[in-house]
């Protein structure tokens, strides 16, 4: 464990807590894409299949449980909770996320490190996570006013993977044979997808104006 990776995990945790805070306290999911939340639940479900078979560390297991629990409860809130549902913008959250799941599954079947069920599922989760934010970014483009909590949620979600890139660079130079091209390329693609959001988010923060994305 290095500082970049710990910072990445904490940033990821903060993004999830910000979202849970928003939904649980003010009972609102305004501006949040249910499609992205469902994709993230699928990412964690397929990535953490080894949660009961491979024990890495207490930290690793606890964090996996937190990410699984939070992502599924967020989907439950947005699908089942009457009050939260009222603020869900289903008319604009129309990204066909099946178009993301199938290509990632096919790609995982073609390009993976080992052809086993768990490894293919893990690789699928890596590819899917890279594109899971797309429905959310599309929704932000469509809804004019982005409230602070939603902006912070997306910002921390993007920041965590860029910290992971620093972690991979660090591990590449400090651990012999530490090479994971699949994770590295997917992580880079994932971070690049946030590039324009980061640009508008930081410039809105610098100019102290409301975050609005260009149409």
């Amino acid at each position: 464990m290095n500082a970049f990776r710990l910072a990445g995990d904490m940033t990821h945790l903060i993004s999830v807590l910000v979202l849970l805070l928003k939904i649980h306290t003010i009972k609102s999911c305004a501006g949040i894409s249910l499609k992205t939340q469902e994709l993230y639940a699928l990412v964690f479900a397929t990535r953490y299949l080894d949660i009961f078979t491979d024990f890495i560390s207490l930290y690793n297991t606890v964090m996996k449980l937190i990410f699984l629990g939070s992502s599924f409860s967020i989907v439950w809130y947005m699908r089942r909770h009457k009050l939260v549902q009222r603020s869900y913008d289903k008319d604009h959250d129309t990204f066909r996320h099946q178009l993301l799941v199938l290509p990632c599954l096919i790609l995982a079947l073609l390009i993976h490190e080992q052809f086993t069920f768990k490894e293919v599922m893990w690789t699928f989760s890596i590819y899917l996570e890279a594109v899971a934010i797309l429905p959310q970014l599309v929704l932000l483009q469509r809804t004019r006013n982005i409230d602070n909590l939603t902006g912070q949620y997306v910002f921390f979600l993007g920041a965590y993977r860029s910290l992971y890139i620093l972690n991979w660079i660090y591990r590449y130079f400090t651990e012999p044979h530490y090479v994971h091209w699949i994770t590295w390329i997917s992580g880079l693609v994932q971070t690049l997808l946030y590039a324009d959001f980061f640009y508008y988010y930081i410039s809105s923060w610098k100019n102290n104006v409301k975050l609005t994305l260009p149409a």
Binding site: E113, Y164, H180
Partner: peptide
Amino acid sequence: SEPGDSHDEL
């Protein structure tokens, strides 16, 4: 690490 090692990252 060898390909297919148990993945130690989240």
